[in-house]
Amino acid sequence: MTPKVVVLDSGSGNLRSAQRALERVGADVTVTADTTAAVEADGLVVPGVGAFAACMAGLDGIGAREAIAERLAAQRPLLGICVGMQVLFDAGVEHGVETKGLGVLPGRVEPLHAPVLPHMGWNTVTPPEGSTLFAGMDADTRFYFVHSYAVHDTDGLVTWAEHGERFVAAVERGLVSATQFHPEKSGDAGATLLEHWLRTL
């Protein structure tokens, strides 16, 4: 059976490339701001680019906070990508201003301390034992990152990366999966990760 996936359109994120990448690995994808569809789909993808506060404002503008809570209460999985991952945490701090996140994952998004920002380009990651997303991937597999903020500590199965300092590159915690990098821009490695996620739906 083809999994039905909603890519949530809150006005932030690379929606079409996420759609194409998921279709490439066999999902039936709808891009929509309809929160009922977002609650009921087999899988929900929350993309996001740009500023944490702007992404949260877009999500709150379409009622996504309630929809995501309802979805998780109904035991349905979701995948956050880039700023769509960051907003799943408790809070984000940008330019000294703290914005409340969705609070689905414990932790705070704070500036990344590195000689060059943003962290832009390909980087390797270190997944934990038992990871579903990264199962069977080589240690030198690279993913595509674009960000200046990161989470430095959280719970769950945490995949790490380094740019100036260690930060959370991905997390798997119950029904929630999230990646700081862009799987939809990460070629075959990203496609494999999305395929692994689809198998959990």
Rank of each mutant, 00 (worst) to 15 (best):
I81L: 08
P77G: 11
G63W: 05
V87K: 05
I68M: 10
E110F: 09
A57C: 12
H113F: 08
G80E: 02
P128F: 01
A73Q: 10
L79D: 10
P106H: 12
A73C: 04
P127V: 00
E165D: 07
R166G: 01
V151K: 00
G107S: 01
I81C: 04
T99K: 00
V83H: 07
L72T: 08
P127T: 02
V93L: 09
A150G: 01
A114W: 06
G156V: 06
R108C: 10
A67C: 13
V171L: 06
L79W: 13
L112T: 02
L117P: 14
P77H: 10
E98G: 06
Y144R: 00
G130P: 10
R71C: 11
V109C: 13
Q86D: 05
F167K: 03
T132L: 10
D90Q: 08
Q86G: 04
V93R: 05
V125M: 05
T141P: 03
T141W: 01
F134K: 05
G58F: 08
E94W: 00
L79S: 11
H152K: 15
V104Q: 12
P77F: 11
V116E: 10
I68T: 08
V158Q: 09
D90I: 04
M56W: 13
H119W: 01
R76C: 14
T126H: 15
V104C: 12
T141L: 05
V158Y: 10
A139G: 02
L72S: 10
V168I: 07
R71M: 11
M85P: 04
V151Q: 01
F167E: 01
T99V: 02
A91R: 14
L59S: 13
D90V: 02
E70A: 15
